[in-house]
């Protein structure tokens, strides 16, 4: 294992300058929970790593309002911070669940949301959950700041639209509006320290009639080369009354449209089937059915009245992980 230089700038601009100057030989490091694995295995051989740890103001979680609204997440915010945020659990439950189900508590204490996005793994949990909320990335480059929708950020496994020297500064989640329900289900073989075999996120925002779907998002992990949204399935739901049948039909379309693959880690048919099964389950568990009067309130379907939908998952200790042994 080769050694490398460790650089620790104190400003984002400084970090961008270090990276720009060094070109391909340097790489940014946040929590190093992805980077170190790649260096150890010999996949990456940087001559220098530029730490973002010394930069103030990147480890932040800033809600727009105490009782809802949007959220700004600093790129260096560790997942544990989102996991512990009552605000996130109340107003963006799927995001909280995505963060809480990642790795182990130790990994969540160091691994950052920014690192998860920039690493661009098809199974990235917080990135897949963030896809539900139309998040925007704020990117610092040598020439200043630019913004890019998260949905346009991923190019392929490990590949993003970040240009040389660019760093992710923060993630902005717009106010999803009232009557929003969300849920993230990570499908795994075991409950602890596990990458998703596939994952499903859903978000519904209902009109004030509490029946008509205003916005629908279905995000999928490990069902394509990057985290994706099932756009055709989402569109099927919008503007129509929420029904179980509609969701089942949308789930089928999401499954059909997916680009699931066969690998020894999971079979394509099984991943596809799980989209069919878990999209409706996630909808149910988001609390949307109860809100829309499709189901009676129960332990399983989450908090109905507040529209928060932080549901109580049997595997609560592992966040939203739906691992069966």
């Amino acid at each position: 294992m080769a050694g490398f230089e460790y650089v620790r700038p104190t400003t984002l601009e400084g970090a961008v300058a270090e990276l720009s100057m060094r070109g391909d030989t340097a790489v940014a490091v946040a929590g190093a929970t992805d980077l170190w694995v790649n260096i150890r295995s010999g996949k990456m051989k940087p001559e220098a790593v530029v730490s973002l740890r010394g930069i103030a103001g990147l480890d932040v979680l800033t809600p727009e309002r105490a009782d809802g609204g949007g959220l700004t997440i600093g790129a260096m915010t560790p997942h544990g911070k989102v996991e512990d945020s009552l605000w996130a659990a109340n107003y963006l439950p799927a995001l909280q669940q995505g963060c809480a189900g990642l790795g182990s508590r130790q990994v969540r204490n160091v691994g950052t949301v920014g690192g998860n996005i920039c690493n661009a793994a098809p199974c990235a949990d917080s990135a897949t959950a963030l896809m539900l909320f139309d998040a925007t990335l704020v990117i610092q480059g040598p020439g200043g700041l630019r913004e890019l929708p998260l949905g346009e950020f991923f190019v392929g496994p490990g590949m993003t639209r970040l240009l040389k020297g660019e760093l992710l500064k923060e993630i902005r989640v717009p106010d999803p509006g009232a009557n929003t329900f969300s849920r993230y289900i990570k499908h795994t073989r075991r409950r602890g320290v596990e990458l998703a075999m596939m994952s499903v996120g859903v978000r519904l925002t209902l009109e004030d009639d509490m029946t008509t779907v205003k916005t629908a998002r279905i995000s999928l992990g490990v069902c394509a080369p990057t985290p994706t949204c099932a756009t055709r399935a989402q569109d099927m739901l919008v503007g129509k009354p929420l029904t179980r049948e509609a969701v089942e039909a949308a789930a089928l379309v999401a499954a059909d449209d997916s680009q699931v693959r066969d690998s020894w880690r999971g079979k394509a048919w099984y991943r596809r089937e799980m989209i069919r099964v878990l999209v409706p389950r996630a909808m149910e568990q988001s609390g949307a059915y109860v809100a829309a009067g499709l189901a009676a309130p129960s332990d399983d379907s989450g908090a109905a009245s507040t529209g928060a939908g932080a549901s109580d998952d049997p595997g609560a200790s592992s966040g939203a992980t739906e691992g069966g042994a």
Partner: peptide, 15 residues
């Protein structure tokens, strides 16, 4: 193919 604890599914404390 799976000589590591990521891909060899030994159960964890949570399991």
């Amino acid at each position: 193919l799976n000589p590591n604890f990521r891909d060899y599914k030994m159960l964890t404390a949570l399991d």
